[in-house]
Nucleic acid binder design. Structure first.
Lengths: 230, 230
DNA sequence: TCAAAAGTGTTTATTCTACACCCATGA
DNA sequence: TCATGGGTGTAGAATAAACACTTTTGA
C-alpha cells in the first residue's frame, strides 16, 4: 500500500554516536556492521529511518535499543546532516544524536539490520559508511565543549566512582594530561560530588574513596543561575 | 504528478532565526506575517519546505532570500525540531538555522508567502506560529554561548565599528552591563581588532576610533590551536 | 618489603574586578 | 560653554599553575 504526496519527500533517518569509556579509560564509540545495502559489511553508526508517528528523540532511542540493546542513558540531538549525496540510494536527511553510556554496565546485543556491534577507540576508527565519520567528529568536538560546562561526563561513569576515574575520563575526552592536585581542588570546590563512606574494592594498592554526583544539588545550582567551568 | 513511496514520509522544512542589532543596539529577530495556512496572519520565522535537490544549508539560504531579501551573512544550523504535533497539517520535521545579519545594511522585502517582514526585539516577541518561540529561545542561548568563544558577533556589526558598539552588542546579547575599561583591555589583548586610521563621523561628541575584525589573523590564531573566551 | 596508586599544600604568576576623571567634538 | 560619549590605569582579590612527598594496600 503506497504513500502518495504532491511533492517529492526526502526520507528522514536518525543516527547515534554512542560514547563509552572502557576499563582502561579509553574513549570509545559504538559501531555496528551493516548487513543491508548500501555499505554492506562496513562499519556504521547505529541508526535507521524515523517513523511518522514518533518524535525524532524517540526514533533515536528506539534505534539505539533495537540495534545495540541499550535502553537508557543520556541521549541528546547533535544536529541534522543534509548534504545532497550523503546517501547513495535516495535523498536522506539524517538527524545525528549523541549518547553517553556507562560502558561497564552494558553487554551489547546486535539485532535488526546490525550483524555485529563493537566498541572502537575514537582515535582508531575503521572507515565508516555514509558521512558517519563526520558525525563522530562533530559529536566529539561537542562533547569536549559540553563536559567543560555541564556535568554530562558522569553519564559515562558508574554511579560510584573515584576521583582518579573522573580525572582520566576528562583526560580521555580532551586528550590532555591534567594535574592531579589541581583537578581535585577544582572539582571538589564545585560541591557537586558526595563522598560515600565506601572505598574501592580489590585493588592492589591503597583503596580510593568513592564518590557520587549530586544531581539534586546540581539542579539547585542551575536554578540559582550558576555555571561552572572546568 | 504524484510522488509515491513504500513507506510514509514526513515533510522536511527549514526555519531561520535571524538576529540583528538595530541603531539603538537592541537585539532583534526577524519575523514574517504568514499569509498561507496554517496560522494565517500570525508571526513566524522565515522558512519553508526543503527541495530534494538542495542541501539543508542551501534550503535555509534560499528561504531566507525568498522571504526577506537577505542574500548574505552568517548562517549556521541550530538543530532539528521533530516533535509529533508541531505542525497541525502533517508530520513535518523542521531544521532550524541561526542567521546573523548586519541590520543597518538591510532593507527588507517581504515576498512569497510572507505578507510582511518586521524586526522585533527578542525581549518583546509577539506570539509565534508552530514551535517557533522555542526555536528562538534555543537560538538565543546558543548565540550567547557562541559569542563567548568565537568571533560571530562581528557578523551583526558593520565592517567598521567602534569599541562601544561592540560592547553594546555583547551587552544586548547577554543582557548584562559590562565595565568599559575591562572590556577594552580584554578585547584588544586578543589582537583580532585592527584600528583603522579613521574616526566616526557626524556625532555630537568626541569621535570614536573605528576598528575592523581581522579575519585572517583569527584563522592563524585558530590554526595555532588557540581559543579565546570573553 | 615492594610496587602501585591515593592523598595532600604552598608558592608564584596570571587574570579579574572595581573604580573616576580628563578629553574631544558638535550643537 | 555645555552636553555627550571617548578614552585611559591601578590596586586588591581571586584564580590558575607548577610542583614532590607520605600513606595505604595487596601481592
Amino acid at each position: 500500500m503506497p504513500y502518495i504526496y504532491d511533492y517529492p519527500r526526502p526520507a528522514i533517518a536518525v543516527d547515534c554516536v554512542v560514547f563509552g569509556v572502557d576499563a582502561t579509560n579509553r574513549l570509545k564509540v559504538l559501531l555496528i556492521e551493516r548487513q543491508l545495502p548500501p555499505f554492506v559489511g562496513q562499519w556504521a553508526l547505529p541508526g535507521g529511518f524515523m517513523r511518522p508517528e514518533e518524535s525524532l528523540d524517540n526514533a533515536a532511542r528506539r534505534k539505539l535499543r533495537e540495534e545495540t540493546g541499550i535502553q537508557e542513558g543520556f541521549l541528546e540531538q547533535l544536529r541534522a546532516f543534509g548534504a545532497v549525496g550523503r546517501d547513495p540510494r535516495d535523498r536522506v536527511v539524517s538527524i545525528a544524536y549523541t549518547a553517553l553510556v556507562n560502558l561497564r554496565d552494558h553487554t551489547l546485543q546486535a539485532a535488526t539490520d546490525a550483524r555485529d556491534a563493537q566498541w572502537f577507540p575514537v582515535s582508531a576508527l575503521p572507515p565508516l559508511a555514509f558521512d558517519h565519520a563526520e558525525m563522530v567528529q562533530v559529536a566529539l568536538v561537542r562533547l569536549q565543549h559540553q563536559v567543560r560546562i555541564a556535568p554530562v561526563g558522569f553519564e559515562l561513569l558508574p554511579p560510584k566512582f573515584t576521583l582518579t576515574q573522573l580525572q582520566q575520563l576528562y583526560e580521555a575526552i580532551w586528550g590532555v594530561a591534567i594535574d592531579k592536585r589541581n583537578f581535585r581542588k577544582k572539582i571538589l570546590k564545585l560541591g557537586l560530588l558526595v563522598p560515600l563512606g565506601e572505598k574501592e574494592q580489590g585493588v592492589a594498592h591503597r583503596a580510593a574513596q568513592l564518590y557520587r554526583f549530586d544531581g539534586d544539588r546540581y539542579r539547585q545550582f542551575q536554578q540559582a543561575g550558576l555555571n561552572f567551568e572546568l
